[in-house]
Design a binder for these strands. Structure first.
Length: 752
DNA sequence: GGAAAGACATTTTTT
DNA sequence: ATGTCTTTCC
């Protein structure tokens, strides 16, 4: 069996329809003839290939491509699917996209039947928050009681049926009343301004299909087969939507892996996949267990981690590849060391012939990217951060889009609030307050009320500013709705938004200008690709793109990303950082058994992204915003049999002399200071010697005392045996259970 | 009304 | 350490 992952056959449909490149299970899934099929596809078992080929097979069986609905988790996955299907006659007519996009598609067409203006605007989280904050002001609610973000999560929670743990404790005194008021106002506000949030996109579609049987019927007729990818991450509303769009004669195929369900916190219901046969009693199930991605040690290590979860769908992955390299586990003293190790690991892989774009570094929280970035910068290792502040999330891009949204939907309150005073037009908080009062009194949307600024009692200056603002929007509304780029340009020029950035003394604003220009360029590209594409389509595109959609392969750089962002990707070399309690599992999920199981799955997902090399680091101490903290290695590491591990200590990586001449950074090129341990080996040694001295003097331990071990964390001293050099201690560690250690090596500290 | 300075909390993951 | 929200002063 080849160990080269690139040797695997391309998953594109074979033009001749042959299935010879599939294994038995895959072939069974592709050619399943019944109405309902569940494909439980373990990590790296060829899930995407099966999905694509099944669509191809359905078409070959005579199902018209436009009668196929394929729902994916990201737009990128949908585009990828479409690209592969293009080789097939009619393949481009398959409807492929995310649940949200499908909802949006139906609501634009039929929303009017349930009182939704087809010109609705889609709100993202920022927009939702700005509306909610405005409501806080109107209702004079103390932003400390439920904080706006919490209230927002709670609103979403309630909208989605309220299963699981509520993000907000409504039993706290005084909260419930203000929350209900908030929620009601929020919903009314969105209604009034033709705004839909992400939840509404799904919920309103369900309502449409429920309240309008004739429309539902139309789609029952149309879709002969529905396929859903990543089914383990669908929520109850998505399942509901699926059941309603599916006609009595339609077939359904869902693909997923319960072990990779990592979006429970967002409302994903693993139940959907685990109890698929309850929704579809005659469903058949195909299990894909042969992994083509990873070498033996990597897969084995990952399996031994996931095995510990309770209530799993029975499944055991295997590979026919060689064992390959051991999983390397490196203990670092602190976060800086970890950065050094990351850089060095990357360099080592590079020396072994890897390209940088075959390497990925994962972390649990996005904020951890900073330390890694710093270390890679110092060594001039090119990298790309996937996600982070993504393009469409940038303030200036959102500002520009807000202008455009107001052109498309004059009632868009979130957009109005965002840019009515950007750049400054003399419309401050006091004026807005007057405007809101006036709007509320006459039951108008904010944008509508604005045209009567004087009546609202605004100052002359403010009223003037608002007038200029509205005049610009009117002017642009008179322009044709396509192409989009000129619309954006007219707005940016007419509002002087562009000019303000250009003239700003702040360099940050200058770089913002570039982003604004990039947005215009993006719009121009959009116009080229879709000559018919109007403003509305463009805005929808912008609202529904995700961070993951931005990821591109073959950049010649190392990829840095959160584990969540890594889902669905694979890399020859993977480095998982921060494998510690608090990250894996995350501190927030401690004490919640279901949450902890999800954390384990998350670590499993991280491990199974690796094809040939998997390296894991953890730090004994880490600097947080509250100061330096002790860190305990992730308990998941303990589940990996030591026969699959290559244990390393930061010290074992050797002094910075190990850096090859060629990679030695140019000292003049950096304004950063290298970490002491890297730039001055002697200092590092001094530190180690100091530690040793502390150790020898010893903390005079007694049985029953709490102690701290730099590796295993806190524990209780159970017993002492032997004496002098051979003294051994037995310690019951909180996170690792009982261990016997040589006292002289244990580096114990006494805990109060 | 706006700018600047200061207080303050913030860190999970995101369609 | 950073960014956001609030306060203060012009």
């Amino acid at each position: 069996m080849s160990t080269n992952p690139y040797a695997h056959p391309n998953p594109s449909p074979q033009p001749d329809g042959s299935l010879g490149d599939l294994n038995d299970a895959q072939r069974g899934a592709v050619t399943h003839a019944g109405d309902a099929l569940l494909v439980v596809a373990g990590a790296g078992t060829g899930k995407t290939r099966v999905l694509t080929r099944r669509v191809a097979w359905l078409i070959q069986q005579g199902l018209a491509p436009y009668r196929i609905l394929a729902i994916t988790f990201t737009n990128k996955a949908a585009d990828e699917l479409k690209r592969r299907l293009e080789e097939l006659p009619g393949g481009a007519q398959v409807w492929a996209g995310t649940f949200h996009r499908f909802g949006s598609f139906l609501l634009r067409r039929h929303g009017a039947d349930i009182g939704i203006d087809p010109g609705f605007t889609i709100l993202d989280r920022d927009d939702q928050l700005s509306i909610l904050k405005a409501i806080y002001k109107d209702l004079d609610i103390d932003p400390a009681t439920p904080r706006p973000v919490e209230a927002l999560s709670m609103i979403s929670h309630v909208k989605n049926g309220g299963g699981g743990r509520p993000p907000l404790d409504l039993t706290a005194p005084g909260i419930a009343a203000s929350f209900d008021a908030l929620r009601e106002h929020y919903i009314a506000r969105l209604r009034q301004a033709d705004l839909l949030d992400f939840d509404d996109l799904l919920l309103e579609t369900v309502r449409l299909l429920t309240e309008c049987p004739h429309i539902a019927e139309q789609y029952h007729q149309r879709f002969g087969h529905v396929l859903v990818d990543e089914y383990q991450d669908t929520n109850v509303v998505q399942r509901d939507l699926l059941l309603r769009v599916l006609g009595p004669d339609a077939g359904i195929t869902v693909v997923g892996d319960p072990d990779q369900s990592i979006y429970r916190w967002r409302g994903a219901a693993v139940r959907n996949i685990l109890e698929f046969d309850q929704d579809f009693p005659d469903a058949e199930q195909v299990l894909l267990e042969r992994n083509y991605r990873s070498t033996g040690h990597i897969l084995g290590a990952a399996e031994s981690v996931i095995e510990r979860n309770k209530g799993r769908h029975a499944k055991r992955l295997f590979t026919e590849q060689d064992d390959g390299a051991l999983v390397k586990l490196t203990r670092c003293r602190n976060g800086e060391d970890e950065g050094t190790v990351a850089a060095q690991q990357i360099a080592n892989w590079q020396d072994a012939g890897r390209r940088l774009d075959q390497i990925a570094v994962f972390y649990r929280v996005n904020s951890m990217s900073r330390g890694i970035e710093l270390a890679l910068n110092q060594r001039r290792i090119p990298y790309v951060v996937v996600a982070g502040t993504e393009f469409f999330q940038r303030r200036e891009v959102k500002d520009a889009l807000a202008y455009a949204r107001l052109v498309a939907n004059p009632k868009d309150e979130a957009a109005f609030l965002r840019v009515v005073n950007k750049p400054r037009r003399g419309v401050g908080a006091a004026s807005l307050r007057k405007l809101r009062d006036f709007a509320a009194m006459h039951d108008l949307a904010l944008g509508t009320a604005a045209s009567r600024a004087e009546e609202a009692g605004m100052s002359k200056r403010a009223a003037n500013g608002v007038k200029r603002f509205l005049a610009l929007l009117e002017r642009v509304r008179a322009m044709p709705v396509a192409p989009v780029a000129p619309i954006l340009e007219a707005l940016l020029e007419g509002s002087e938004y562009r000019a303000t950035l250009q003239d700003s003394p702040d360099d940050l604003d200058r770089s913002r200008l570039e982003n604004v220009d990039e947005l215009v360029a993006y719009a121009r590209e959009f116009g080229k690709q879709e000559p018919e594409g109007d403003l509305r389509t463009f805005l929808e595109r912008a609202a529904l793109v995700s961070d993951q959609d931005g990821y591109e392969r073959g950049t010649g750089r190392v990829s840095l990303m959160s584990v969540h962002a890594a889902k669905g990707l694979e890399f020859p070399c993977v480095l998982i950082t921060g494998a510690e309690m608090g990250y894996f599992p995350h501190a927030r999920s401690l004490g919640d058994p279901a949450g902890e199981e999800e954390e384990r799955r998350l670590f499993y997902v991280a491990m199974t992204r690796a094809q040939e090399e998997l390296s894991v680091t953890h730090a004994a101490r880490r600097q947080t915003y509250m100061g330096e903290e002790h860190r305990v290695p992730s308990p998941y590491l303990n589940d990996v049999p030591s026969s699959r591990l290559d244990n390393q200590d930061f010290a074992a990586w050797g002094a910075p002399a190990a850096w090859s001449e060629a990679r030695q950074p140019d000292p003049d090129a950096f304004d950063f200071e290298l970490p002491a341990s890297a730039s001055h080996p002697s200092e590092a040694m001094a530190a180690l010697q100091h530690e040793a001295a502390v150790r020898e003097s010893g903390p005079g331990l007694e049985v029953g005392e709490r102690v701290l071990h730099p590796y295993f964390g806190a524990g209780r001293l159970e017993a002492v045996s032997g004496a002098g050099e051979d003294a051994r201690v037995t310690i019951d560690f909180d996170a690792f259970g009982q261990k016997q250690l040589l006292l002289r090596h244990a580096r114990l500290e006494k805990l109060p």
